[in-house]
């Protein structure tokens, strides 16, 4: 079985990468989880997962004829398989986004849950691909007007491609006053469940500085508990890995980023 989720937000700074790894670790308690940094232009997952010194990344898989096998860019960390992406601009420019499709198709054959940390902006062909290809999208929101507006936008893009919303996650929430009203109201506009409300916390920043996912760095913290609650609310569907792999492989994919 496999289900592919794009973790998306429509804008930067919402804590999308923190959320991807936290949901991944929480889901890994019951599932075989693979996390991919599909934000190839602004990769940062490697810093969150202590992988900033690795030699081989997704970029090597996206460049033609390097002969790199997917397994060489896949790292077992924190109970998950993690495919980080490098940060070199030259590598980004040399990368062929069409190959992301094949990489993800390969990974789909060997996991239960695929989490694609997706680009914040939807301004390019390669940036929209994770949302196009995923089964469902998890929308990470902050309770601010611009973040909600951009979140609605990314959800609508996803729906245009038949990708429904698995749920929304309110992240970096500053105070509880009025948040319930906002969450209730927002749920009318966003599909799926409200997965959790994650408080803004220094512990999240400390985890990032330590190069560890939040659930490894501070598993007993309030935000970590909220992410576990969120993961428990995602009902992972048992897709056929062959179908998912075929869907990724057959996607009409642009020639250039």
């Amino acid at each position: 079985m496999v289900e592919a989720f794009a973790v998306a937000s429509g804008k930067g700074g919402t804590g999308k990468t923190t959320s991807t790894l936290a949901l991944g670790m929480a889901l890994a308690a019951d599932h075989d989880v693979t996390v991919v940094d599909a934000d190839t232009g602004m990769a940062n997952l490697l810093f969150h997962a202590g992988l900033d010194d690795v030699e081989v990344t997704l970029h090597d898989l996206l460049v033609e004829e390097t002969g790199t096998h997917v397994s060489e860019a896949t790292y077992d960390r924190f109970g998950m398989s993690v495919v980080p992406c490098g940060t070199s601009l030259a590598a980004f420019e040399a990368a062929d986004p069409a190959r992301l499709r094949d990489v993800v198709a390969d990974l789909a054959g060997d996991t239960d849950v695929l989490l694609l940390d997706s680009p914040a902006a939807l301004g390019s062909k390669s940036a929209v691909l994770p949302v196009v290809l995923a089964d469902r999208v998890v929308v990470v929101l902050q309770p601010t007007v611009p973040a909600l507006s951009d979140g609605l936008k990314v959800q609508e893009y996803a729906r245009s491609y038949g990708t429904e919303t698995a749920g929304v996650l309110f992240n970096r929430v500053h105070d509880d006053a009025g948040i319930d009203r906002i969450v209730d109201r927002a749920s009318e506009y966003f599909g799926g469940e409200t997965l959790a409300t994650v408080p803004d916390s220094d512990v999240v920043r400390a985890a990032r500085r330590a190069g560890e996912p939040l659930l490894a760095h501070a598993p007993e913290s309030v935000p970590a508990a909220a992410y576990r609650e969120a993961a428990a609310r995602i009902d992972v569907r048992a897709g056929d890995e062959g179908d998912v792999a075929d869907r990724f492989r057959s996607a009409v994919v642009p020639d250039t980023p």
Partner: peptide, 27 residues
């Protein structure tokens, strides 16, 4: 909110055409 969604939908469809992704659009 409806206007934002309609605008995003129109933009997604226009860009899908531009990016050669119309075959991936939902029916």
């Amino acid at each position: 909110l409806d206007a934002i969604r309609q605008q995003a939908r129109a933009e997604a469809e226009a860009r899908a055409e531009q990016w050669g992704l119309t075959g991936q659009l939902a029916d």
